[in-house]
């Protein structure tokens, strides 16, 4: 690892030294192309974040791609109904690695106000891994930008080798995530145990 102090001293003398990993992560985090889809009202805030006033282009994430094959980032913007969930998982599978997921808003995180309903998935983290969760109903565009910056910081810390190895660099975990099937009473399976590991809730009696 390059010594940070030495790096900054050299930079002051006009010499730019970096590692391949830094350069690679800088490139990836500065061009996070989101998949262009919205599921509910959060999508309106996502559109506002991308438009001129909030201008997501400042963070390199303005290139919304209509095809999952060209996207790096999936912003789950809105309520994921059980009818929609298999399609979201399939779109995620179709995205090439490295790929990231932002769960935007209460519904995408947990089902939100519809949690006790029969038709809404209680959080997309039941089927696909979520990198950043943005609370709010809906979150303001600033919150989405904050989540994006958080994701960029996360990408910056990822390494190609070693303990903090990025998922895409680990070829042993390259399989698709199973797409749930429409069952007679619920989605089957109701969640993917390999992905969904909620922390146990501690309760006082």
């Amino acid at each position: 690892m390059l010594d940070e102090q030495l790096k900054s001293d050299l930079q002051k003398r006009g010499i730019f030294v970096t590692s391949f990993e830094d350069l690679y992560n800088w490139g990836r985090r500065s061009s996070l192309w989101p998949l262009q889809f919205g599921l509910a009202c959060c999508a309106i805030e996502m559109i506002a974040a991308a438009a001129a006033r909030f201008d997501m282009a400042r963070f390199g994430a303005e290139v919304f791609r209509p095809s999952p094959r060209q996207a790096d980032l999936m912003i789950i913007a809105g309520t994921v109904t059980k009818k929609m969930a298999p399609l979201v998982v399939r779109l995620y599978n179709q995205m090439p690695e490295p790929k990231y997921v932002i769960a935007m808003g209460a519904c995408a995180i947990s089902g939100g106000p519809f949690k006790e309903g029969y038709n809404v998935l209680k959080g997309i983290d039941r089927y696909i891994p979520v990198d950043v969760a943005i609370p709010g109903c809906p979150p303001r565009p600033e919150a989405l930008l904050e989540g994006l910056i958080k994701l960029q910081k996360k990408i910056d810390k990822q390494t190609l080798f070693g303990p903090n190895q990025a998922r895409h660099a680990d070829r042993s975990d390259a399989a698709d995530y199973p797409v749930p099937a429409y069952g007679a009473h619920d989605l089957e399976p109701p969640m993917n145990p390999a992905v969904f590991r909620p922390e146990p809730v501690e309760r006082e009696e």
């Binding site: 059980k82 009818k83 029969y118 038709n119 429409y182 069952g183 007679a184 009473h185």
Partner: peptide
């Protein structure tokens, strides 16, 4: 119209 075709219940 709202639930999927394989669904058996009437919620």
């Amino acid at each position: 119209i709202l639930m999927w075709d394989e669904y058996a219940d009437h919620p």
